[in-house]
Write a protein that binds this DNA or RNA. Structure first.
Lengths: 242, 242
DNA sequence: ACCACTAAATGAATGCTATTCATTTATGAG
DNA sequence: CTCATAAATGAATAGCATTCATTTAGTGGT
């Protein structure tokens, strides 16, 4: 049994179970909660996850503190540590919840190219609103994240069915994932990120290139780069199929 | 003149000028330093950058605190704020220093494909040892980072010379960069990151794919994915050239 | 029906963190 | 000679994750 946030078979994060509202704390007659609580307390992992997500939506990742989370759940901060080992565990719970939102349904229904397109876009869109999780995912053993593992299973099955040689499946997925994570950051970048400012004369080639892209007047420049890279990866990796 | 860490033409981070050791604080007769100091004090941006890098090497990014940095530089923590607006500024100085270490020399000397290969590898290698900077770079306006801007200039000049249409240069670079940043994280991941653990039976396809890759016995699996993705991007993006 | 056990809560305390501010002082400019 | 200022100090602040001794309320066993 893994030490970390979730026992493998547990239903703590069942599918898209965000809908399960966190159980509210039963109050005593005077309205104040009493210390000491029996088996089956107010908190559980699903409630903590839902609370964290709610906090992130309203206040962003800066607003996600153990104290704020405890207050939202109407509980003392220390109570959280009966259910998670650390704040990192909370982030892990959130990450695994989000993984279930990534759309892998096209694998098996549509041609490989189109399935990858839909999966990659969905993956990027979900995590572009949660970039602070990316450093966490990157070194997260999948054992601790059942929904994430489920996503990998669906994707790798799609790759196999498309004719990828067994030993290249994981590497191909990792390559795509790396591109997706990097691209998720781009979405959050300020629009003028490439403005050379006062160094424009010193960097004529780059300045011209930036200007030329700007003149195209794309709504979201990050989307252009994403499409470009994604199509390149799809056709390049697709060539590996037997 | 930009408000942020570096005036454009300043020599505070001249090229690979890490070698310039931070000036030590002159001590008074009794060995204690006195409060109050005139124009041209102990600290400057180059010294802060060098100190931060030294700290990162020895203690990692967790060890990089304003207090530790001040102690290393033999100065009170508050003194740093005369030269830097925030800790983020320190990270920015470090980032820009590292950008100068990325090898762009192949652009103009070698064919485009090979130049991109060398640049991308170098870029990934440098930042795989500094992944905590990646979230910083991602939203960093280049105006504040002259060395980073210099790198972009060299790369975009290489792309133009290779025949890329003006308006696709930036997007192509961004796509490659996204992949590079994501891949930098992979390098730091634990070797058993994809071990499905107790969920192995539930994820047969992924488990088989992971096992098959493991049997190949590659030293660093992250390198395989990086090469795969990089070659795909090079051939895919290369097709854009006119 | 009792009793012991234990999961799950409390709240106070700890040690870090970045950052701010009033104060001091050495220096170079006029 | 004076004086404005850059650049230092150190004390104070607010917020952070985390730990710990303590309390309590149910549950299973006898």
């Amino acid at each position: 049994m893994p030490a970390s946030p979730d026992a493998p078979g547990s239903a703590s994060l069942g599918g898209t179970a965000l809908g399960s509202t966190p159980r509210r704390a039963p109050k005593t007659e005077n309205g104040r909660r009493r210390a000491g609580r029996p088996v089956g307390g107010v908190l559980d992992k699903a409630g903590i996850t839902a609370g964290a997500l709610q906090l992130i939506e309203k206040k962003g990742y800066d607003g996600l503190t153990m104290a704020a989370l405890a207050r939202l759940l109407d509980v003392a901060p220390s109570a959280l540590y009966n259910h998670v080992k650390s704040k990192r565990d909370v982030l892990l719970l959130v990450e695994d919840h989000l993984a279930a939102l990534v759309d892998v349904s096209a694998f098996g229904m549509e041609p490989w190219e189109e399935a990858v397109r839909k999966w990659a876009r969905s993956y990027r869109d979900v995590f572009s609103r949660h970039t602070p999780l990316i450093p966490v995912i990157a070194v997260l053993p999948v054992t601790d994240a059942p929904q994430t593992l489920a996503m990998y299973e669906a994707v790798s099955a799609g790759f196999r069915k498309a004719g990828f040689p067994e030993e290249r499946i994981v590497s191909s997925i990792v390559a795509l994932e790396s591109f997706i994570f990097g691209s998720a950051y781009d979405v959050t970048a300020p629009p003028d990120i490439f403005d050379p400012g006062s160094m424009a004369e010193a960097t004529p080639s780059f300045t011209a290139a930036v200007r030329s892209l700007a003149e195209q007047g794309h709504e979201r420049p990050a989307d252009v780069a994403f499409s470009l890279g994604l199509e390149a990866l799809i056709s390049g990796l697709g060539a590996l199929r037997g």
